[in-house]
């Protein structure tokens, strides 16, 4: 009897260990980013998305919504937000979310009055394994979101397998136990080229992000221009963007030197 129990116990431990070693990953769709992330975003972990300025909040929100849409995979999504973010950068609009190709029917919004409540609610939601993802949206510097809080969220996410996405608007990155950390800005719509005339109004307006991966626990970092494909619900490399895109930071005022060098090389 005891031998059997011991054996069962050890098998369980091996299996649990094996699961922890190869966690599920969800591909983002952007080939370079997926390669850097070794297959995609880890499920059942915390991921942080930062914006350095408040006016970039919509871009970061779009990026987080995209990540949530990728990992949630038609399961319910809980979006916990602090009251202040709504005043400062607008409320999350369901029509807008639907336009991005995500399903507003699967979204439950929690309007937390302050960071403490939001944090506690998010930890609670992360423990519920019926969810696809939990988004916690916090404005500005929050001393409550320290290493301890971050660890708690990570443990809850690991235990339930629910992915936690922390959206920090107008905040500086701090030490945390997150799996990945991104800084997101809005990128230009693809500029007019000979192939795509400027007058074509439909050539712009698709969400394009300048996503910088500044921390990756199990791999290198990088910076990419990503476009969110609303119809396919995935990130992709914008086709009409001037090359090279992956390496060059988008905010560099002129990309002519890079292109000139390329021409010289060829």
């Amino acid at each position: 009897m005891t031998t059997l129990a011991t054996l069962r116990g050890s098998i369980e431990r091996i299996e649990a260990h094996g699961d922890a070693c190869t966690p599920g990953r969800v591909a983002l769709g952007h080939a370079d980013a997926d390669a850097t992330l070794q297959g995609g975003l880890v499920v059942g972990a915390m991921h942080e998305v930062f914006t350095d300025a408040g006016r970039q909040s919509a871009a970061a929100t779009g990026f987080v919504a995209g990540l949530a849409g990728r990992v949630a995979a038609r399961r319910p999504l809980v979006w916990v937000r602090q009251d202040f973010t709504e005043i400062e950068s607008g409320a999350l609009s369901m029509s807008g979310l639907a336009e991005l190709g995500l399903d507003p029917r699967l979204l439950v919004t929690v309007r937390a009055a302050d960071v403490d409540t939001a944090l506690r609610t998010a930890a609670d939601a992360l423990a519920c394994d019926a969810l696809g993802a939990v988004v916690l949206e916090v404005w500005g510097e929050a001393r409550q979101l320290d290493l301890v809080a971050s660890r708690k969220l990570t443990l809850a996410a690991q235990a339930s397998g629910v992915t936690g996405l922390l959206l920090r608007l107008a905040a500086e990155p701090q030490p945390s136990t997150a799996e990945t950390r991104w800084i997101v800005r809005a990128a230009h719509s693809p500029p007019a080229s000979s192939l795509m005339p400027a007058a074509a109004w439909s050539a712009w307006g698709a969400p394009v992000f300048d996503a910088q991966l500044v921390r990756n626990r199990h791999g290198p970092v990088g910076r990419w221009i990503m476009e969110w494909k609303c119809d396919e619900c995935l990130f992709s490399k914008p086709a009409a963007y001037p090359q090279p895109v992956a390496a060059a930071p988008a905010h560099r005022p002129h990309q002519t030197p890079a292109r000139a060098r390329q021409r010289r090389a060829s």
Binding site: A58, T61, A91, A98, E99, C230
Partner: peptide, 15 residues
């Protein structure tokens, strides 16, 4: 949503 169109409604809306 209309297929192939970029988003026609904003993601964040001011009350």
């Amino acid at each position: 949503r209309v297929e192939g169109e970029p988003p026609l409604r904003p993601l964040r809306l001011f009350e």
